[in-house]
Amino acid sequence: MTHTAELVVRSYECDSYNHVNNAVYLNYLEFARMEFLHACGFDYKAVFDAGYYLYVTHIDIYYRASAVLDDKLFIEVKPVKLKSLSGEFRQKIYKDDGTVCVEASVSWACVSSKTGRPSKLPEAFLVEGLRPEK
């Protein structure tokens, strides 16, 4: 499943050059991943209540072009790997004219809140949308 979230760049996200600050793109990626999880029926709160956390373990991010105030952005999320303890998303942020601003690869892992150690995500939470398309 691929999901696309939308947002418009706000003034407080821009630096003195009127460009979106590099660190803000990480927030955009997180926003879109949460939107993706909601869209595919993943119950993040239930995972937390069951004693598990999902942590981002690694992000490779490539800045391609700048976004500026009032740009409409689309943030695409696509699962590309799902293992027993972890997974990976590919994400892309682009403008409405198709200009790609950011490409990222985001790795995540499931951790037990009881032990603080990597743990298998229970089968009940492995919704179809988390599985990469074939």
Rank of each mutant, 00 (worst) to 15 (best):
L69F: 06
D97I: 07
A67I: 11
K95D: 00
P132H: 06
E103R: 04
S119Q: 11
Y25F: 15
E128W: 00
V127Q: 13
A50T: 00
A5K: 12
H19W: 04
N27F: 10
L130V: 04
D70G: 02
D71V: 10
A67Y: 02
L126P: 07
S112L: 00
A104V: 10
E88S: 07
G129H: 03
L37M: 13
D15V: 04
S66A: 15
F48T: 01
H3Q: 13
K134E: 11
S11E: 00
F42K: 03
N18F: 11
V9I: 14
S112W: 00
S105N: 12
K120P: 14
S105A: 10
V106P: 05
L7Q: 09
A109S: 10
N18A: 13
K45Y: 13
A104W: 01
K45M: 11
D15Y: 03
V9M: 13
S105M: 09
S11G: 12
E103G: 01
L37S: 14
V127R: 12
A109P: 03
S86N: 08
Y55M: 07
P132I: 13
N18D: 12
F74V: 03
C110V: 02
L126H: 11
R90C: 02
A5D: 15
V80P: 00
Y62S: 15
K72F: 02
C40A: 04
Y52H: 14
R90Y: 08
F36S: 15
L82H: 04
N18V: 02
R10I: 14
E35F: 01
K114V: 01
S66D: 10
G98W: 10
K114W: 00
S86I: 01
L121W: 09
C40G: 05
S112M: 01
Y55R: 03
E103C: 02
N27M: 10
A39F: 05
Y52E: 08
A46G: 01
R10K: 14
A124L: 15
K45W: 13
Y94D: 09
V127N: 15
S84N: 08
Y25L: 10
L54W: 14
P132M: 10
S16F: 04
S11Y: 02
D43L: 13
Y52I: 08
V24M: 15
L73D: 06
C14T: 15
K83T: 12
D71T: 10
G41I: 09
G116Q: 09
A46W: 15
A65Y: 04
K83M: 07
C14M: 03
F31S: 06
I75A: 08
L69S: 01
A65P: 00
R117C: 05
R64D: 05
W108K: 04
L37K: 11
V102L: 06
Y17S: 14
S105V: 14
V47P: 01
G51T: 04
C40K: 06
A65V: 02
F42L: 15
W108P: 08
M34I: 14
D49V: 02
E76N: 06
Y44H: 15
F125M: 09
E76W: 07
R131S: 11
M34G: 09
Y12A: 13
V127H: 11
N18C: 07
L130D: 03
Y55I: 11
D71I: 11
E123N: 08
P122V: 05
Y44I: 08
L54H: 04
K92T: 15
K83G: 09
K134S: 14
I61D: 02
